[in-house]
Amino acid sequence: MKRKRMVERFRFPYMQRQMYDLLLAACRAEVALRHREFVASDSYLRHIADVARWLTGTDTTFGLFLCGNRGNGKTTLVKAMKSLYNLLHSDEGYTSQNDCWPLFGFEIITAKELVLLAKAYNNRTRDNMSDVGRYKRLRDVEVLCIDDLGTEPRESLNYGDYVNAAMDMISYRYEEQFCTMATSNLAADEIREYYDERFADRFREMMQIVDFGNEASFRTIKR
């Protein structure tokens, strides 16, 4: 039998301290784009350090789960990682990316939007092939982040059939061992309650957890 190819764990080619400095600068830039002033607490800087350690280390997990209150910088940190990913690959051509496995790229999608794409994929018509194509790309892209996991309905009806969009996507990427990230207001121990034990077990295996807890927002209006 032909052996399945093992996916190399996604990591940035920097030392941990370099990664921390790059992430911090990228977070500042993301906040500045929204005309806000970046005011980071000691705990937020520790979270950046935790992510930098995971992005450069030898940890065997191939996923990252950022959980905690709204407005405390989880999505900002993910966007900072995407900016650095794009910077790292900015001098590479795109002609051969479809030959790569997994597909080249770093995609971010909200859990609610993922439900809509999953419905399009399950109900393929000539009119929704762009959504179908995007859903297929999300399944196989090198790095995928599902933002606001848990804000989507766990099950959605689609012409009488149930769609479990986030569960299906993460389970597929778990089997393929593709790098998958998620942000959520759900705590790590609430994943089982919102989804189910089988999904939670896979989630625990693949994800490095960074808990932002009840920290206040670090964004203030720039004056």
Rank of each mutant, 00 (worst) to 15 (best):
G73S: 07
Y121W: 12
H89Q: 14
M81A: 03
T76K: 06
T110E: 04
T61N: 03
Y44R: 01
G57Y: 07
W54G: 02
L64Q: 03
V51E: 06
A80F: 13
Q97D: 09
G133I: 07
D127V: 02
S96T: 07
V115W: 05
A40E: 06
L64V: 08
V78W: 08
C67Q: 11
T110I: 04
Y44C: 00
E107W: 00
K112Q: 10
G93C: 14
T58W: 10
T76C: 13
V78C: 12
L64C: 06
K79D: 01
W101P: 12
R134E: 12
A111S: 05
A80V: 09
C67I: 08
Y135H: 01
F62L: 13
D131I: 09
D91K: 15
M129Y: 14
N128F: 03
D42A: 11
E92N: 06
L64H: 02
L45F: 15
N122C: 11
L88Y: 10
D59W: 06
D99G: 02
A111W: 01
A111E: 01
F65R: 05
V78F: 09
S96E: 09
F38Y: 07
T95H: 14
F65W: 10
R137V: 07
G71A: 01
A52L: 06
S41E: 01
S43E: 12
L114K: 11
Q97F: 04
S41Y: 01
A80T: 13
N123R: 14
R124Y: 03
R46Q: 11
N128M: 02
N123L: 15
L103K: 15
Y85S: 01
V132C: 06
S83D: 14
H47M: 03
L45K: 15
R134C: 10
R139M: 14
L87A: 11
A120Q: 13
Y85N: 04
R134D: 08
L138V: 08
L103A: 12
Y121H: 10
W54I: 05
K136L: 15
T61L: 02
D42F: 07
Y44S: 02
I109R: 02
W101K: 12
N98P: 01
N123H: 12
K79W: 01
L77G: 10
V115G: 08
H47C: 06
E92Y: 02
L87E: 13
C100N: 15
N122H: 10
V132L: 04
L77A: 06
P102I: 00
G105V: 00
T61H: 03
L138Y: 10
T95N: 15
L66F: 03
L116D: 05
W54L: 08
T60D: 12
T75K: 07
